[in-house]
Every structure is written in C-alpha cells, then in structure tokens.
Nucleic acid binder design. Structure first.
Lengths: 155, 155
DNA sequence: GTAATTTCTCAACCTAACTTTAGGTCAAGG
DNA sequence: CCTTGACCTAAAGTTAGGTTGAGAAATTAC
C-alpha cells in the first residue's frame, strides 16, 4: 500500500497551481518520476505536491531546473519527505539566497554613493566602469550565458 | 560640432564590453539611436558607452529591455547626460531595487522560520502553500510570463 | 592601389521554460 | 454502446535576449 493508487496529473496540477503541461515538462526534466497505471497514465505521490511547491519556490529564488534537480537529489523519491529532509535542502537554499541579497545590497550601496556624488559620469565609479564588469565576467546574459567569444588562446 | 564624427560600433562594443551584435540588437529595441555616416555606418555618441553601462547594470537589477527603455526615456539622447540626469533615473532604480531586496529578504525570513519549525511539511507554511502562490499570481514564469490560460471561455 | 578589416542587412538559429496543437487512447456515466 | 472528459505522445510554437552566417559595401592599413 502506501502507494494507494496515486493521484492523476490533473489533480496534482490543480493542487500545485501549475498547468498539466508544466508537470509533464518537469517530468521530462527529471524533477519528478511518476509511475504508470495499467492504462499508461501517470500516477503521482501526494508528496509530489510538495515537491512541486519546492520547485516553484526554488524558481523564485532564481534556480534553473537543472539546478533544482540537483537540490532534489537530496529528497528521497520513494518515501514522504520528512521535515528534516526539507530542512536539509532548505539550508542549501539559504546560502544562495544570502548571496543574492548581498549582491543586490552592494549594488544598491554603490548606487547610493553614485547618486550622492554624481560619479556615474566619472571613470572611477564602480557601477559605471564597463571594464570592471567585463573583467569579472559571468554576470548578465553576456555571450549567450556561457561565454563563447573570447580570446580562447589556451584552455 | 559636439558630434565630432561619433564613434563606430566596434569601438563602442569594446568600450562597453559587449558584442557588436548586442549593440545592434539594443538599437532595434530602441535603447540607442545612432545616426549614420555618409557610407551608411552607425555612429554613436561617446556618451552611449555610459548609456550601455546603464543598460547592463539595469539588467543585473533584473529589468527587461522594454523596462530599461522606459528608464532611459529620462535620459536625453541629444546631449551628454549630466550627473543630475543620472541621479534622477538612478533614484528611480533605487525604489525598484529596494523592493526586490525586500522581497528576497521576506522569502529568506520565511525560509528561516520553516527550517526551524519544519513547517514546509505543514499546510500553514507560507513558502509551501501552493494555493497562496497560485492566488497571488504573477510570480515566476507562470503561463509563459503573462497569464494566458485562465478565463478562456470565449474565442 | 590593393588588401585586410569593419560594417552593413536580413534571416536563421540558440537556450530556457513552457504552451499549443494534432491525432489518438482511457475511464466513467447514462 | 456511446459520449464526454481527462490523459497520452510528439512535434512545433512562444518569449527574451541575443548570436551566427552569408554576401556585399565601406573604411582603414600598408
């Protein structure tokens, strides 16, 4: 038992507040592993509602689906996750989140300084200086989010 | 004078740390308005380096290109922007940025609470509860970032 | 006066995260 | 039995933010 026949995709979708198509897509991305009933239809654990909630939260935190799949590795698929399971992966979240917040705050502080001094018009402004940003790399969607065109002299 | 022949796209690209193609794309999106020389090539103001810097910063802040175009409306295209110009739109930034930070902090606080109490497994957790999120709408990429499938009774 | 760069346009391609569509199958009700 | 609604698969479409490529014209360098 324990499996108690499972729930259908439509039910899961409604409970999670997602489109059915999104859930199929998530399965294709390896975020869920439903089984099939005799007629070939997907059956899910009720606990997958929480799993999907987690996915949605993680997305709000800025994680990509592959990254979320990684986080979910820590969540046992077979049994209902315990609070301890959630706590474990949640704390992984925590550090990512802290970093994002810190980055934004730094950006804001910089901006504050610039507003005060008008240095966006000057070459020594950290926010302004393109070379700084180009140098640190890996920020925005630079080069299709993966840094293709560069010198590439040697690995 | 003042226009002093302007600079070429390649120069601008290098100074801004962007690909040439990106700059053409930004022009197509209405973020820049270069003029053309006698041979039909784009010529830019030197001040456009800063304009592009602004675009890149705004992107890091999470603004979309249309939104950035809106912010740039306040930047006069014809003359070199003054520190006062930058200060004006920077302070517009400020409030957006504050909001983003606040949202993330709330999320973090919620998460902290959940880690402590294990309530991700319980129905009263704000982070967990799907219905809450489904109800507030307009968060993640729900329905292709624009809420299509909803009413759908007509058409 | 060439040769080598740059730049031009325009269309096609790319990734992420889904949705939509087309053509069929399964399950329940009357 | 027949209809209705939920479900199935596979492929194509969508949006954002660009990149890539082809073929031609303009600029720059020697």
């Amino acid at each position: 038992m324990a499996k108690s026949a499972g729930v259908a995709i439509g039910y899961l979708a409604e409970r999670a507040g997602l489109a059915v198509s999104a859930i199929r897509y998530y399965e294709a991305q390896g975020l869920l592993e439903p089984w099939r009933n005799s007629g070939g239809q997907r059956r899910f654990h009720r606990a997958d509602i929480r799993r999907l909630s987690f996915v949605m939260i993680a997305q709000q935190f800025g994680f990509s689906l592959p990254e979320i799949r990684g986080l979910l590795k820590d969540l046992p698929g077979g049994r209902t996750p315990t609070p301890a399971d959630w706590a474990r992966i949640s704390s992984g979240f925590r550090s990512h989140l802290d970093q994002r917040i810190e980055t934004l705050q730094k950006l804001r502080d910089n901006l504050d300084g610039c507003i005060g001094c008008g240095c966006l018009a000057l070459p020594n402004c950290a926010l302004y200086n393109p070379q700084d940003r180009a140098a640190q790399k890996g920020k925005g969607p630079r080069y299709l989010m993966g840094d293709s065109p560069e010198p590439q002299n040697g690995s």
